[in-house]
Simulated scan of single mutants.
Amino acid sequence: MDRTVMRIFRIVLILVAALGLAACSSKFKTYDGPAVTQLQVYKGARELFLMHDNTVLKSYKIELGNQPVGPKRFEGDGRTPEGLYYINRRNPNSAYHLSIGISYPNVHDVQVAKAAGLPPGGDIFIHGEDPRRGRTSQDWTAGCIAVSDKDIEDIYAMVRDGTPIFIMP
């Protein structure tokens, strides 16, 4: 009987340890520092800055749409938008680890696409890596802003919905 009790105790101990380790590896982090008041993206430099007023809190290397030069004009053009947008949603179950949505298209974007007789597109996000490709250091998205999975975990925790994002050439 003692051996059975010891075996059960060991199994329970192993399960508790495994669950504890799994909890430590969660992709959902917490952040209690200064509020991110805006995001700034510089497409040419491939950098994203999380700002608190005029202070840079964090900076990240980014990858862009597979046609990185110029603003997004219509669905399927492979470009990343340029202009003022807002973080407007989040996806904890993203195919790209985690993602936060950008409010593209704005009124101007809709007008530009409509004038060309084309749909403006949508579903522009800041997201993690493509699990099939990993981090490539080359522009590969359909117009989104990609960062490493580790970086999107920080960004996801730090940035709130409604935060302005300025995307510059």
Rank of each mutant, 00 (worst) to 15 (best):
Y85G: 08
V112S: 01
G83S: 04
R73H: 05
D77C: 06
G78K: 04
V36F: 05
Y42F: 04
P105H: 03
S59T: 15
M51A: 05
V107G: 06
P68D: 02
K29M: 08
Y60P: 04
P81M: 01
Q67C: 07
K114W: 03
H52K: 07
D77G: 04
N66A: 09
N106I: 15
R89K: 13
P68R: 01
A116V: 12
K29S: 06
T55V: 15
S103V: 13
G33K: 09
E63K: 08
N91E: 13
D109G: 13
K27L: 09
Y96W: 07
A95R: 14
E47Y: 03
K61H: 07
Q67I: 15
T30E: 03
I100T: 12
G44C: 00
K58A: 05
P34W: 02
K43E: 03
N93I: 15
E47W: 02
Q67P: 01
R89N: 13
V56S: 07
N54K: 07
G83P: 03
R79P: 02
Y42A: 07
K61I: 15
Q67D: 09
H97N: 11
F74A: 08
I87H: 00
L118P: 02
R89S: 14
K58Q: 08
I87D: 00
L57K: 13
P119W: 01
V110R: 14
D77W: 10
V36T: 08
K29G: 02
Q67H: 13
K114H: 07
Y86R: 05
G33Q: 08
R79M: 07
G117R: 08
A45D: 10
K43M: 01
A95M: 12
